[in-house]
Simulated assay, not measured.
Amino acid sequence: MKYESFDDIYSRACQRKGGVEALESLLSEPLSNKQLALIPDDRFLAQFSMSIFQSGFVWRVIRNKWPAFEEVFWEFNIEKLLMMPADMLERKSQDVRIVRNFTKVKTIPANAQMIRNIQLEHGSFAKFIANWPESDIVGLWLYLKKHGQRLGGNTGPYALRQLGKDTFILSSDVESYLRAHSIIEGGLYSKRSLDAIQRAFNHWQSESGRSLTELSRLIAYGVGENTVQA
């Protein structure tokens, strides 16, 4: 597979975003593995839950209500959540301070259990995430989808990005680029497509030394309706 060079990707993003300085100001680095490993596991559960509630909803509304979510669900204390009886969970799901969606509320203890299982095997969920190689980031996506609840599609990747894990995001702009350059043809989240996407990003990372986070944004800035006059 012949990929477009990183220099061409970067040059196009520069032209569309007003030059190198303007473009670089839009980029951000992920956390280091050491920094990731220090994040409390309850913050992973909180971010997973926030991303699940934001999916298909107005993100701003969820952010505004999030302090109430933290209060209602004991700041996402994993041990407390796993001890919570079913009738209490149902009552909490009807609290007027949060978004009352019982289907999504049920993912909170379910994903707490996933995190607890990983804690027992790896010491902490944060270390598990930190040690997962970025060269197989789609493997982590698939793990979260299989062992968690409602973490498939872009929900898991967006949560990882917010937490600081280095990952690309398959936004509509990135997907458009991948299809236009014949990197993928079928379903976006098929194993064949995900493997092809991972190989492409690994190639650009090897070529450029840039993080997956930066590469994803650079590709997105080079397509779509986001041109800025220089």
Rank of each mutant, 00 (worst) to 15 (best):
K80N: 12
S135M: 08
I183E: 10
S55I: 02
M88V: 15
L218Y: 00
P67F: 06
L36M: 09
S206E: 12
F102L: 13
E225W: 03
V138R: 00
G139N: 06
L45T: 06
D195M: 08
Q54Y: 03
N64R: 14
K104H: 06
L212Y: 13
A110W: 02
E4H: 09
M83L: 14
I183P: 00
I98P: 09
S193Q: 11
G56F: 05
K2T: 09
I115W: 05
I137S: 10
L120G: 12
E134Y: 03
A86H: 09
S25E: 13
T167V: 14
E121N: 07
I98N: 05
R63K: 10
P85S: 11
E79F: 05
N117F: 01
I169E: 06
I184P: 08
S32L: 11
I9S: 01
L26R: 15
R60E: 01
P85L: 10
R12Q: 13
S172G: 11
A200W: 05
E70S: 10
Y221Q: 11
D87E: 14
Q94G: 03
I108N: 01
D41K: 08
S206K: 15
Y143A: 06
D8C: 05
E90I: 13
D41G: 07
R179Q: 11
P157Y: 04
N101K: 09
L140G: 03
L151P: 07
L82I: 10
Y177H: 14
N117M: 12
V228R: 12
F57G: 02
N226A: 08
E134V: 14
I137V: 14
K2F: 00
S32A: 06
A220Y: 01
N64H: 12
K127C: 15
K92F: 11
I115D: 05
Y177I: 07
E21F: 04
I184C: 05
K191G: 15
S206N: 14
Q205P: 01
E75M: 07
V228A: 06
K34M: 12
E207N: 05
A68C: 08
A200M: 13
Y177L: 08
K191N: 15
F53M: 04
A200S: 13
E207A: 10
F53N: 02
R91L: 14
S5H: 08
D166G: 03
G153T: 03
E214V: 08
D136Q: 07
T103F: 12
L218C: 02
T103I: 13
V174F: 11
N77H: 09
V58K: 14
I98M: 03
L89D: 00
R43V: 06
A86G: 02
G152V: 03
E24R: 10
W141G: 04
Y177T: 09
R199I: 11
R150A: 13
R100L: 00
L31N: 06
P30D: 01
D7G: 03
Q229Y: 05
L188N: 09
I78E: 00
P40R: 10
A159V: 09
S5D: 08
S5T: 14
W66Y: 04
R150D: 12
F44N: 01
D136K: 00
F102G: 00
P157H: 04
S171G: 11
K165R: 15
L120P: 11
K127G: 15
K92M: 14
V20T: 09
I115Y: 03
G209P: 04
A46K: 01
G56C: 09
G152Y: 01
